[in-house]
Nucleic acid binder design. Structure first.
Lengths: 226, 226
DNA sequence: GCTTTTTCAATTGTCGACAATCTACAAGCT
DNA sequence: AGCTTGTAGATTGTCGACAATTGAAAAAGC
């Protein structure tokens, strides 16, 4: 053995700039700090962050591939505006993914207990009326569900999809939903999985995502310009 | 009207270099000219193409997001090696996508006649033992199927997935399949769609993709290095 | 002979500058 | 006034050079 020291001193994190920039921008977008339509200009960001354009450019390209930024062709780039249609598509596709995951979980006899902590966290968050915490727990629940299906590509596509769903949730008026409702919806899913009731589990999830999706004619979620 | 001249003179195509490079590389990879494991070095490509590293770098990033190239961390980049697991995942996910598309097509009463030309093309290609033509027609058929479901995000994810499936098909030994078999499999799908028989259509497609997928323990498709 | 240290080559990461292209506004012509 | 033409500004596209990091070969020490 050459590496004598137990190198758990500290993981030196030296992420490339593009990653840091991408993370920053991504967080800003999906949290709704940067609203759809906000112009993204390489030089501005570069000056603002005191770095050159190259890493900024690459970061923007990453977010473009994630569907959070779009290029308008000789106009510039901007945070991608949302359309009712896109919201519909995102939620419907997500539903398919979760249904697929459920079938695999049951088929492969996966242990679903990793889902329970998130249910508990959701209940607690709802009790404290903590929207942020609830969203984190909700995402944790569903991402774990996908993980349990043991399908790496599915997980990566789901992650990408969920970024945009997260953005939608953040932009939506947070007040008009009962947090307890969301929290309560999840435990039955776990139970259905345990009972290996594919039909029930899928229909529970479908209801859940549908009720979340049908807010399409909502607030000023959508931009006016064509 | 300001644009007086009937400007059908010729559409001037001036794609950015990164696009041209990405297209070139993508084609080379999915056609099997560049095999999994082949190192991708920015400077080499730049010199070879007589351009600077910047656009090459961006092109590589595009292919990385498409899952065709991977970074090995301080070793370099390379054409992503295939694993049996990845093949399995790709085909299983594709099956879900097509099933979802079928359900939407039937639900929305879409006209499926755009699928027919591809069936004809496949039969013809099989008759001439033209593997290339058959693959093109096959891709056309399935992509059209997805298009008919009228779901833009689904289509873009499917496109991405199919790139890698195309790569797998190209790397596989082309000889050990009966082309006529593939060609014959598609018309019944169209018929089932016409009869709005969801179950039948999906099971036909599933059989079709499964028979294509279960070649996992095939040839030297997979690299040896861990 | 084996281990440790040093050096070197290869590769990616970052930078600042310049080129190209389009939009939008202003100026000029009829 | 209405149309065309020019011009300035903004933004992305491309370039060549340098910095940083790493793996592996070469050199040094025991």
């Amino acid at each position: 053995m050459t590496d004598s020291a137990p190198t758990d001193i500290a993981r030196i994190e030296n992420l490339p700039l593009r990653m840091q920039v991408a993370d920053t921008l991504r967080r800003a977008i999906i949290n709704g700090k940067m609203k759809p339509g906000t112009p993204i200009v390489e030089l501005n960001l570069a000056n603002q962050l005191n770095i050159s354009r190259a890493p900024v450019r690459e970061a923007i390209q990453i977010l473009e591939n994630e569907g959070l930024i779009e290029t308008v062709a000789y106009k510039g780039k901007r945070v991608k505006p949302l359309t009712p249609r896109e919201v519909e598509e995102l939620y419907s596709l997500r539903e398919q993914f979760e249904a697929f995951a459920v079938r695999r979980i049951i088929e492969f006899n996966k242990d679903v207990s990793p889902l329970e902590p998130f249910c508990q966290a959701m209940t607690e968050a709802a009790a404290h009326d903590d929207f942020e915490a609830l969203m984190v727990a909700d995402q944790g629940f569903h991402r774990t569900l996908i993980s349990l299906s043991d399908h790496a590509i599915l997980l990566s596509v789901w992650d990408n999809l969920f970024l945009r769903i997260h953005q939608i949730m953040a932009l939506r008026n947070k007040a008009n939903r009962d947090l307890n409702d969301v929290a309560r919806n999840h435990l039955p899913i776990v139970a259905a999985l345990r009972k290996k009731d594919i039909i029930l589990a899928i229909s529970l999830i479908s209801d859940h995502t549908r009720s979340a999706a049908d807010i399409t004619n909502n607030a000023e979620l959508f931009a006016k310009d064509e």
